[in-house]
Each structure stands twice: as C-alpha cells, then as structure tokens.
C-alpha cells in the first residue's frame, strides 16, 4: 500500500512549508537527544578520567586504547560475554523448538481442545513472570538449578513460549493447505511435510520470533540478579554492575566497559534494523 505513488503524493502534498519544517526540526532534535549520549559514552571510553572531567567535549585520542585493554584483560568481560551468548543461544533454541512445535500442531491440525490450548498459551502473554519470582526461586532450588546457567535458560524459555506460539501460529495458519495436500499425495508423512515443506517457508516468522525473544533475554538483568551469584556464571548486564562497583572512580574504564557491552547488539541492530523493529514490535503491531 505504501509503495504506490499515490500514497507518496498524499503523504507530502499539502502543507509543505512551515508545518513540515517544524516536524523536521522535531525529528532532528530528537535524533540528537537519542544519539548524543550514546556517542559520548563511546568517546569517553577513549579518555582518561582526568580528560573526561576536564575536557568532556573534546575529541579523544582514538589511539589510546588503555581503558578497553583494562576492561578486556583485568575484568571477566569475555566470561560474561560467553555466558550471555550461551544463555541467549540456548534459550532461543529451546523457545523456537518448543514454540514452533506447539504452533504447528495448533495451526495445521484442528482437534477437540485446540482452541482452548491456544488460549492457554496466549494467557501467558498477560502474565509478567517477574511477579512469580518467589515460587520460581523455590522451584529452581528444588531442581538444583539455582546459580546455574541452565536455570536461566529454563526460565527464559518459559517466558518466551507464549509470544512465540502467538507469532508462529499466526504465520503458519496463512500457509496454503494445497502445499500440504500435494505433499501428502506424493506420500510424504506428517513429520516430513512439517520439516521439509512447511518449516522452510516459516523461516521469516522464526527470525521475527527469535529477535522478539533474544533482545529481552540478552538484555535481562532481573533474573540473573535473583538466581546467579557465582561470578563465573554471570551474564554481561549483570557482570557490568559487578565491575562498575569495582571501578567507581575510574570513569574512563567505566565508559569503555559500557561501550564494549553495548557494541555487540548495536552492531547487529544497525545491520538488521528492519528485522529488529519488526521483531520487537510484533504482537503490538498487527
């Protein structure tokens, strides 16, 4: 719809002049407010604490990597990063596997109770799992999963299932029945049809579901705060608070650490901004 020339005409036609100028100023001003702090964070990573305090706005000497070296060698940065990758990766794998299984069963087969089961999953969308943290704590203790990475994967998987079932069911329902029928006539089994015919077509929806869950999991602070105490098992956001405590007065190192922590997701976001925006607003946007 938005690709037709007519849309573009109506989008711009009237009230060029002053109105659009004000809107343009609003957009430029807003982007400045959004980006300037992030830019300063990066620049201060190259400065010594003295330079930050004395000349906050001067451009730094970009060949001065001392702070970054300190973060990478004196702290457990790589350990935290690895934990975040393992936990996010494990959670997404489990979420997509379980979520797609349920969604496929609900979207492609109709049986007594299928609507009820779908609604059961959707109800999970309304529940902030944070508020069930005390029972989860007891449950993880009983399963011996306190202070483990696996425990976090289990919780994130539970947290991600409802939205994934929602996104995947919505998409799988739109795939034409004829594809399934044709493969069935060729003698393909139910499992074969799912794996070789339908799932390859569902990849774009899986990417959206993966991003929708990966960003909050990657960024999460609350669950590690409750469940993980051992430093070698901490995630990146959690580890960041630990080393912030250690370097409170060394602002150069602090900002280098913050910059390094923000870097992985920022790079992926800039490369895949369309998928990120679609993924994170999916469910909120029809």
């Amino acid at each position: 719809m938005s690709a037709t020339p007519q849309t573009r005409d109506t989008g711009r036609a009237t009230s060029g002049g002053l109105g659009d100028l004000l809107l343009q100023i609003l957009l430029v001003g807003n982007s400045f407010v959004m980006l300037f702090p992030i830019l300063v964070m990066g620049l201060w990573g190259f400065k010594s604490t003295g330079e930050i305090f004395g000349k906050p706005f001067a451009l730094p000497n970009f060949s001065n990597l001392t702070n970054f070296v300190t973060v990478l060698t004196q702290t457990n940065f790589f350990g935290y990063l690895l934990n975040s990758i393992l936990i996010t990766g494990g959670s997404i794998l489990a979420i997509l596997t379980l979520g797609t299984m349920a969604a496929y069963g609900l979207a492609r087969y109709r049986f007594a109770g299928s609507v009820a089961i779908y609604l059961f999953f959707l109800a999970g969308l309304m529940v902030p799992l944070k508020l069930a943290i005390i029972p989860l704590f007891i449950q993880m203790r009983d399963l011996n999963l306190l202070d483990t990475r696996l425990g976090l994967v289990v919780i994130y998987t539970a947290m991600g299932l409802p939205s994934t079932v929602f996104i995947m069911t919505g998409f799988l329902r739109t795939l034409p029945k004829e594809l399934e029928d044709a493969a069935r006539i060729d003698g393909a089994s139910d499992a074969r049809i799912m794996w070789s015919v339908m799932l390859p077509l569902a990849r774009p929806a899986m990417v959206i579901a993966a991003i929708h869950n990966a960003v909050p999991v990657w960024n999460d602070f609350f669950f590690p705060l409750i469940f993980v105490q051992t430093d070698s098992r901490k995630t990146l956001p959690q580890g960041l608070t630990a080393f912030m405590g250690e370097y409170t007065t060394n602002w150069g190192v602090l900002f280098a650490g913050l910059t390094l922590s923000a870097l992985p997701i920022t790079i992926v976001y800039i490369l895949l901004s369309k998928q990120f925006i679609q993924g994170m607003t999916s469910g909120a946007v029809k």
Partner: peptide, 22 residues
Amino acid sequence: QLPGHRFHRVAVFLPVILSSVI
C-alpha cells in the same frame, strides 16, 4: 516521509535495544 526519515526511525529505536543496565 521527510528527508532522512529512515535515519531518524533507526535512531529513535536505538536506545530501545540497549539493556536497562547500560
């Protein structure tokens, strides 16, 4: 759809993808 709207769209969403901790 003023000039630069694609850039502004990416910019306004950048903080959203960062962790609350950062």
